[in-house]
Lab assay of single mutants.
Amino acid sequence: MGSVRTNRYSIVSSEEDGMKLATMAVANGFGNGKSKVHTRQQCRSRFVKKDGHCNVQFINVGEKGQRYLADIFTTCVDIRWRWMLVIFCLAFVLSWLFFGCVFWLIALLHGDLDTDYKDDDDKSKVSKACVSEVNSFTAAFLFSIETQTTIGYGFRCVTDECPIAVFMVVFQSIVGCIIDAFIIGAVMAKMAKPKKRNETLVFSHNAVIAMRDGKLCLMWRVGNLRKSHLVEAHVRAQLLKSRITSEGEYIPLDQIDINVGFDSGIDRIFLVSPITIVHEIDEDSPLYDLSKQDIDNADFEIVVILEGMVEATAMTTQCRSSYLANEILWGHRYEPVLFEEKHYYKVDYSRFHKTYEVPNTPLCSARDLAEKKYILSNANSFCYENEVALTSKEEEEDSENGVPESTSTDSPPGIDLHNQASVPLEPRPLRRESEIGSRR
């Protein structure tokens, strides 16, 4: 089982795998120059863009038009607004034209077009017409509009002379109601789609790998820009990579689940303020055997998904993003964004995407760390350097704002901070800030 798991979770494809794949392509008759073999020097295209759209195009789909027309309502909801407006206008105009032609044909076959009612006051002739005051196609078209929109100006009306005319008036009224219901329903469904809710759900630009509770963890940050909550919010993550099976089958995008606390339930989050999602790199993680150097040379993509129900409509929305291997910062942490004021908490989104480097973060893999092949620094050293990194950030910001350097908390000259780390230190809580992250 261990060997199978290692093969499945191998992220960085070796040169031997690339040569094996190329040999397979030639042997199977696919070596026509169009096949692409992804190596370390040639990274694959992003499968999920940063804005959440999937970078996929469908080609050679059989009976595409028929399949889309069979699900016309979903098609109308998914198309762009400009095409929705075109369909909206065409549906009414074509129905008016169709029934206008029908009423014109009825008048033509009944002989109503030969009668001039402007110079004739004989009401008996008017009563013999199928539709009064309809003696041309324009008049028939206007009567069709008046019937379907129930305008009723009063000059044109159907008589009991022709039952077919009466039937067409009733039929057009029913068709008009159906068109109204369909168009209004599609427009309302399109307006109520929770897709735009994703514009106020954000992911951090970069993911980070750092120590948390004595273990290497992959972390990324999510935030909600609205005050309205995302009900039943939960997160998922998958690692996408290519691999070759033991039988020699090439899988271009193998999807591997990344555990973010599904078993323990901590994948469900209360997204009021930005939260750091934590994936513990343990023996079940696809990143277990990867060191910093392996991450730098790897070719994979981590897709992160945030799902929840919109509070206003109770409709489920899904926000997506992805991180390539070069977008994962090893040995970094996110800057705090949640600050405790006197009577409330304040979230500073200008710090949302910012990170700071944490010294002495192990550069080895989580496996080597678990097997004690890498000796961690003293816990006080880690905490102290973590505090120094934050303090230096604040000093830089104070210097930019014009604060005198004498007010900063610099260490005395001639003292090495790293050498001082081995000395037991008193706890130094942050002056006014605390970061709330997901705790395992």
Rank of each mutant, 00 (worst) to 15 (best):
G31W: 05
G2Q: 07
F103W: 15
D121N: 11
Y153K: 06
R221M: 02
T74R: 10
V260H: 03
G265L: 09
D267N: 08
N380T: 09
P286C: 02
Y356L: 15
I87H: 15
S13I: 08
S13R: 04
T200K: 14
A70L: 05
V102P: 00
I256P: 00
Q318K: 03
Q420W: 04
N380V: 06
I72P: 14
S422H: 08
K372F: 06
D254A: 12
V208D: 00
N401P: 10
D121I: 12
F155K: 05
W96Q: 02
R197Y: 13
G308R: 04
M168G: 07
L216S: 02
K195D: 09
I375A: 12
S14A: 12
K227Q: 06
R320N: 06
K50Y: 02
F270Y: 11
L290I: 10
S95M: 15
P194F: 04
Y250C: 09
M309S: 12
P274A: 09
L108M: 15
V358Y: 07
T75M: 07
E280W: 14
V303I: 12
R156S: 00
S95K: 02
N326L: 03
W96V: 15
I269R: 10
T316C: 13
I269L: 12
V12I: 03
R351S: 15
E63T: 12
S3H: 05
E283A: 13
R367H: 11
L108H: 15
M315E: 12
A366I: 02
I79P: 13
S136P: 02
Q255S: 07
H353A: 05
C43F: 05
Q42G: 13
I178Q: 03
Y356F: 14
R428H: 13
L417F: 08
F167P: 02
I145Y: 13
G2S: 11
P404H: 07
L21C: 06
I59C: 15
V272I: 13
T39A: 09
V337I: 11
W330E: 00
L97H: 00
S173W: 09
R268Y: 09
A165Q: 03
L97C: 04
I244R: 15
M219V: 02
Q172V: 02
T23V: 03
L271C: 09
L94T: 05
A139D: 15
G331S: 04
R226H: 13
K20D: 12
V56S: 14
V170K: 01
Y334E: 00
D254H: 05
I375Q: 15
N401D: 13
A25L: 05
C383T: 14
V4F: 04
T276E: 12
K195C: 09
R40P: 07
C89K: 05
R351H: 15
G100K: 01
D160A: 03
C76D: 05
E433G: 11
L271K: 04
H229A: 11
A165S: 03
G248N: 14
E335K: 03
I277S: 02
S228T: 14
F155T: 11
E371W: 02
V56K: 03
S377H: 08
E394G: 04
F339L: 15
I244H: 15
P163N: 03
N32L: 05
I183G: 09
E283P: 11
L338W: 06
D119G: 00
V61D: 15
D368F: 04
G65L: 14
E232Q: 06
W83P: 06
V337G: 01
R197H: 11
Q148C: 02
S173K: 06
M191H: 04
T150S: 12
V303K: 01
A91W: 15
V4E: 11
F300W: 11
A325W: 03
F141W: 07
E327L: 00
L90T: 10
V4K: 08
V170M: 04
A312S: 08
F103L: 03
L287S: 01
D410C: 10
Q41V: 09
F47I: 08
G100F: 00
V134Y: 00
C177P: 08
R67S: 07
I251H: 12
V208P: 00
R5P: 14
A165W: 03
Y356C: 15
D410M: 11
L216W: 01
N386I: 03
K193I: 05
L363R: 04
P286N: 00
T391P: 12
P429G: 08
H353C: 05
S406H: 11
F103M: 05
K373A: 12
A189H: 15
R428D: 15
R226S: 09
P359N: 12
A70R: 15
S406K: 07
W81D: 03
S14W: 03
I59E: 14
L108K: 12
H53E: 05
E357I: 06
T316Q: 09
L290W: 09
G331C: 00
A366G: 07
E340Y: 04
G331P: 00
I244Y: 13
L94Q: 02
R40I: 11
K193T: 08
M84T: 04
I151F: 04
I305V: 12
E426H: 05
K372Q: 15
P163R: 03
K215L: 11
S381Y: 04
P336V: 09
N198E: 14
N55K: 11
V131L: 14
L240P: 01
F203P: 02
L425Y: 14
H110K: 01
G414D: 04
L230A: 11
V208N: 00
E335G: 03
G111F: 02
F58N: 15
K196F: 12
S399R: 10
K190F: 08
R67K: 11
I87Q: 13
D71I: 06
R351G: 15
Y288M: 01
Q255E: 08
F171I: 07
A314Q: 04
L90Q: 12
V37W: 05
I11T: 11
